[in-house]
Amino acid sequence: MARPAWQRALGVQRVAFVLLFLSTLLIVIPAVAIIGTITVRGMGAVSWEFLTTMPTKGMRAGGIFPAIVGTLELVSLTVVFALPIGIATAIYLTEYATDNWLTRLVRLAIVNLSGVPSVVYGLFGLGLFVMFLGFGTSLLAGALTLAIMILPVIITASEEALRSVPKSFREISLSLGASHWQTVRHAVLPFAIPGIMTGTILGIGRAAGETAPILFTVAAFYLPRLPDSIFDQAMALPYHLYVISTQIPNIPASQRYGTAFVLLVLVLSLNLAAVILRARFRRRRQW
């Protein structure tokens, strides 16, 4: 190649690389700025009292205790529903299913579930759990709705975890006279647990931050007490933030930033926990 042409190509490359770098910053900087803003302005609003007392004066003052408890109860219940079915589906797909039309249909269904808009899950939860099954607006209806929403996350992560267990483990187990199920139970599942947990925590993080699916299924606009049972309504952090940001004028900004901060900390620490778990597992893995 002629020297000037090569020089020019290198010049173009330099400009291109700078542009690529700037594009990356265009994504990373807003992320940092958003988290920074919420942290700086929200941290001051958070106090022990803010975390542990009921809201007062039409949510313009007081704490967010019921919203925190509501969210924690909601996601716990969600996991109870989603985890068994999610793991079972992943086991079915990796250990039992043969490549036939039914398996392809299951996969198609999972792909589509992961793409359904969250508000459509809300509609579905309203139609099936709240109205048709008569659960009413309740923790139960909301948790079932969220469970269906995070099912694809748990299935995908569990499948990946199960597939990463070496094939030889299955052969060894069978060769030692184990049945198919004993092999899955004792030679595959134990080694997939860390991966499954990582996926589950990510799913919980998603469920904790979602608002649209719980709008019509669980959320109480203003309920300055804790829910009595799973058939009761409840407040939830993301919905509470939505309400005080849009529906209630003349709220001190600190109430909003404080709530946003608590929600962000909850969701990000779940994500962080998943990342740490995954890294530790990779380092400790012996095969």
Binding site: V32, G209, Y239, L263, V267, N271
Partner: peptide, 14 residues
Amino acid sequence: ELLAAIPSVVLGFL
């Protein structure tokens, strides 16, 4: 990844 984890209601609020 952090950006992906931020709940949409928080982004809406900001």
